[in-house]
Nucleic acid binder design. Structure first.
Length: 548
RNA sequence: GCGCCCGUAGUUCAGUGGAUUAGAAUAUUUGAUUCCGAUUCAAAAGGUCGUAGGUUCGAUUCCUACCGGGCGCGCCA
């Protein structure tokens, strides 16, 4: 069943095609809800957009569209062409209110749509090294990636959520050394931690665990053997903790891809072999370089270092090839702003190997600065001063933490003031929305059942009409937020929905309405609102409590 | 120096495929509860949309330069 917007768009598209003999691409015709509702229920700037194509006055075009549409679409009460050429639609009350029963019958499924049907997408996010706890720097990307995939799934995309574990290479060696030194420290020896080792308290914790489990066994074995042991135990235990924290923070994954597995698979070697055949690499200064400059990079990049080991770049190329070979047509990565310079070279590598130009899309997560008492708190994992995701959530709550990151667009820099987040946790916008839901539930739970309503002829107040219109735009909002990978659009939707629900509540007596008909109609609208709020919050991984 | 991101109300942030009067929250001021939860509602006030040019009938939005802030520019990951 089409929403009112969809019906309008479809009818407008037909008019453009039949009346003006113009073929326009999908998305050309846009219908929006005007800010000022006295202008009508919906409006379109179509006439103005057509001026360039038809080379005619927008007012004239508008009038013609008006005539064509008035008798064509029975949901329309009236059409007005206003100002520079906006077309405002007044929709019949009966057409608007149909959505209420639609929502009630769809329940948890209301909002789901098929806008992404047929698209196979692999989304990689977080992918933090298993060398420490997840901290504030990861928190933004984690919840953002999580919600984008929730939106994808709701919009019919075939989507895989993947975490790429960098469990090989230098940083894991450093973890092993750090752990070894901390372990020795527990037996009274002076630790010799390298500067680029890991100094955090988590490493000490793991050392203690290992002492508990293995005693002094690893003081007395060959150092190389001991280091291998500490590397493996270290990364396994750090990863386990990462998984626990992500779970607590409600960020889910379908797939955990390991760099070690990738290295063992031979895909790196075969990729380099392929590049050699394609003359994409050359040797210089005892290293193997890739000609990325031929594909837009500003310098060539080393794949194999002069000591024979791989740079980070080499396995990462293989990682992306592996994703493509698994059948994904679109690869989405969320990377921190400190990695943005890396995008060009990965794209260059994929292009060089003959993959479609835009198969990889990287969204950059701008920096989060942690402030406390007006001063910046540095977030270094290695100094042990980092505020972890766990600490953050314990402090201000998971709902609040998630919502804080989700309301801000990804490309803006963000100051996270812990003091403010803490002190404001009571009038945090997320509670405003949750309260709207809880209030609705309170009323709905107080009636045995809601009588089915055929005609919503009594819901005519501004508050009721605004609410109904907003409810009806939910599926489209979900589809747009998914397509743009912009969960913040859902937050905007939720804030407005909460506002409309509260205004409705304040102006409309529901349980003791003037008549039984009115009561039932209002209860149905409230039920539809509650369902929509529940579904919207759930798309962001936020609780919709029955009471607070 | 080069590249990417940001600069909108006192504050935190939305917004725009150029278009009807630039929005919300918060803080400030004022009003509203005999009645479904006041964690609420209603209203006022608050803006040269960083600066200067350009394109346009029209620019906060597009283009250029500049200013300010952040982040990159390794045979680190």
């Amino acid at each position: 069943m089409l929403t009112v917007e969809e019906k309008l768009v479809k009818a407008l598209e037909e008019v453009v095609k039949e009346r003006f003999q113009v073929d326009v691409e999908e998305g050309f015709v846009m219908v929006e809800v005007p800010k000022d509702s006295s202008k009508g229920n919906y409006a379109t700037n179509l006439a103005m957009r057509l001026t360039k194509i038809l080379r005619r006055n927008p007012q004239e075009i508008g009038q013609e569209i008006r005539e064509a549409l008035l008798n064509k679409l029975d949901i329309i009460e009236d059409i007005e062409v206003a100002g520079p050429g906006f077309i405002n639609f007044q929709i019949k009350n009966t057409a608007m209110t149909e959505i209420i029963n639609t929502i009630i019958s769809q329940g948890d499924d209301y909002g789901k749509n098929q806008s992404g049907k047929g698209q196979r997408v692999l989304v990689e996010y977080v992918s933090a090294n298993p060398t420490g706890r997840l901290h504030l720097g990861h928190a933004r990307g984690a919840v953002w990636g999580d919600c984008c995939t929730r939106l994808y799934n709701a919009s019919g995309y075939d989507c895989l959520r993947e975490y790429y574990i960098n469990d090989a290479g230098h940083q894991i060696d450093m973890l092993g050394v750090s752990l070894y030194e901390r372990y020795k420290e527990l037996f009274g020896q002076t630790p010799d931690l390298p500067d680029d080792g890991y100094h955090g308290p988590d490493v000490i914790e793991i050392a203690k665990e290992l002492k508990e489990e293995f005693g002094d066994k690893y003081l007395n074995v060959d150092k190389q053997e001991a280091l291998a042991f500490f590397r493996n135990e270290g990364k396994a235990r750090e990863l386990k903790q990462i998984k626990i924290d992500l779970d607590y923070y409600r960020c889910e994954f379908d797939s955990w891809a390991s760099e070690t597995d990738l290295r063992n698979s031979g895909l790196i070697e075969s990729s380099i072999e392929k590049m050699k055949e394609m003359d994409l690499v050359y040797e210089a200064e005892d290293a193997l370089w890739m000609r990325t400059t031929k594909f837009g990079d500003d310098k060539d990049r080393v794949l194999v270092k002069n000591d024979g080991t791989y740079t980070y770049f080499a396995p990462d190329i293989a990682n992306h090839i592996n994703k493509i070979e698994r059948g994904y047509q679109k690869l989405i990565n969320f990377w921190g702003a400190d990695h943005h310079g890396y995008i060009t070279r990965v794209k260059a590598a994929l292009t060089a190997l003959g993959y479609p130009k835009d198969i990889l899309e990287v969204d950059i997560i701008q920096m989060v600065r942690l402030m406390e008492n007006g001063e910046e708190v540095k977030m270094s994992k290695r100094t042990g001063n980092a505020v972890t995701i766990r600490e953050l959530c314990d402090d201000i709550g998971v709902d609040s933490a998630r919502y804080f990151f989700l309301t801000k667009a990804l490309d803006t820099h963000l100051d996270f003031d812990l003091g403010v987040a803490r002190s404001k946790s009571n009038d945090n916008p997320v509670y405003y929305a949750q309260y709207a839901h809880a209030r609705s539930c309170k009323i709905l739970n107080s009636v045995e059942r809601i009588a089915e309503v055929q005609q919503f002829n009594l819901l005519t107040s501004n508050q009721e009409v605004d609410l109904i219109k907003h409810l009806s735009s939910f599926p489209e909002t979900v589809a747009n937020a998914a397509a743009d990978r912009a969960p913040n659009k859902m937050c905007n939707y939720i804030q407005k929905l909460a506002q409309f629900i509260h205004a409705y509540y304040a102006t409309s007596r529901i349980l003791n309405a003037d008549s039984e008909d009115l009561k039932n109609q209002r209860l149905s609208l409230l039920k539809a609102s509650q369902i929509t709020m529940h579904n919207a919050l759930s798309l962001l991984g936020i609780d919709a409590p029955q009471e607070m």
